[in-house]
Design a protein around this nucleic acid. Structure first.
Length: 282
DNA sequence: TCCTCCCTGTTC
DNA sequence: GAACAGGGAGGA
């Protein structure tokens, strides 16, 4: 379940291992891992990994190919969606694929050969590569909302109040803002003191502001703690995050509210398990 | 706008 | 051997 803080942590921990490396080979173990509109992985050979970034829950490798006498320069964006159980790691050149390995890139840097592994138990993860001007062919990319840590309060409030859905469903929709998943939606709504069941369009300006502030506070705190590790999530060095120790509501159904002591409610909302405090969140 | 499905491992 | 975890696509 990597969400924004986890993907940010993966990007930061992966960058020092791969930046400056040349992709010298690519092996796709499971065809469905590659988006049908993506460039095939072998087309990425010869590209240098210039930088590692993130957009919403997408990990981005910015690839560059220097122009030669006959060929122009070409940049490519390689986007990886880890979904629930995707994991990236850089391993020695002799590492072999395992049961859940979906894609392997061979890397070369200053005479050192290594491999970038994309493993994914549940096989929901996806890879999409394209030149920047073709990224918009990918609907998910084109419709992605603004970054939650960059969106202005007024813009966020305007977008949120257009939604006729529950607040929880609105926050999970990547078109509203990009990067929030089930964990951080529940946590930020608890901090904001607003019920996940409320119609987004029924929030007043002050309440929208509380959601906006809580969203920023929770995401920043989670990034500072390198994300949350419930089961599978690890950063690019195999390390777990620590924010799971700070959960106020996620995974705490029927337990006592940390603020008022009453029992937390666990319901199903927007197709997801949802935990909230009926007393503190109105 | 909401529900089901995809996928696999873990837990009950 | 069923329930559950869940992001996003696609259909009702």
């Amino acid at each position: 379940m990597p969400e924004l803080p986890e993907v940010e942590t993966v990007a930061r921990t992966l960058a020092p291992h791969v930046t400056g490396s040349v992709i010298t080979g690519a092996l796709l173990m499971r065809p469905s891992t590659l988006h049908p509109l993506s460039l095939p992985p072998e087309k990425l050979c010869g590209h240098i990994i210039g930088s590692v970034g993130r957009r919403g829950k997408l990990l981005l490798l910015h690839l560059e190919k220097k122009g030669s006498f006959a060929l122009p320069e070409s940049n490519v964006i390689l986007a990886v969606h880890l979904r629930m159980t995707g994991r990236l790691s850089v391993l020695p050149a002799d590492a072999l694929p395992e049961k859940h390995t979906r894609c392997i890139f061979q890397l070369s840097h200053g005479g050192t050969e290594r491999k970038l592994f994309f493993d994914d138990i549940r096989a929901f993860g996806q890879i999409f590569a394209a030149v920047p001007e073709n990224m918009a062919r990918w609907d998910f990319w084109r419709t992605l909302g603004p970054e939650p840590l960059e969106v202005e309060k007024l813009d966020f409030c305007r977008r949120l109040r257009k939604r006729g859905t529950s607040l929880k469903a609105a926050l999970l929709d990547q078109k509203l803002v990009a990067g929030i998943g089930n964990i951080y939606a529940d946590e930020l709504l608890f901090m904001a003191g607003i019920s996940p069941l409320r119609r987004a369009s029924a929030l007043d300006v002050e309440e929208c502001g509380r959601v906006w502030r809580a969203m920023r506070a929770i995401l920043r705190k989670a990034i500072a703690q390198c994300g949350s590790s419930i089961r599978d999530y690890r950063d690019a060095n195999g390390h777990a995050g620590a924010f799971q120790n700070s959960f106020a509501v996620y995974g705490r159904g029927q337990k006592a509210c940390v603020r008022c002591g009453n029992s937390l409610e666990k319901i199903r909302l927007a197709g997801r398990s949802t935990v909230y405090c009926p007393v503190c969140q109105k």
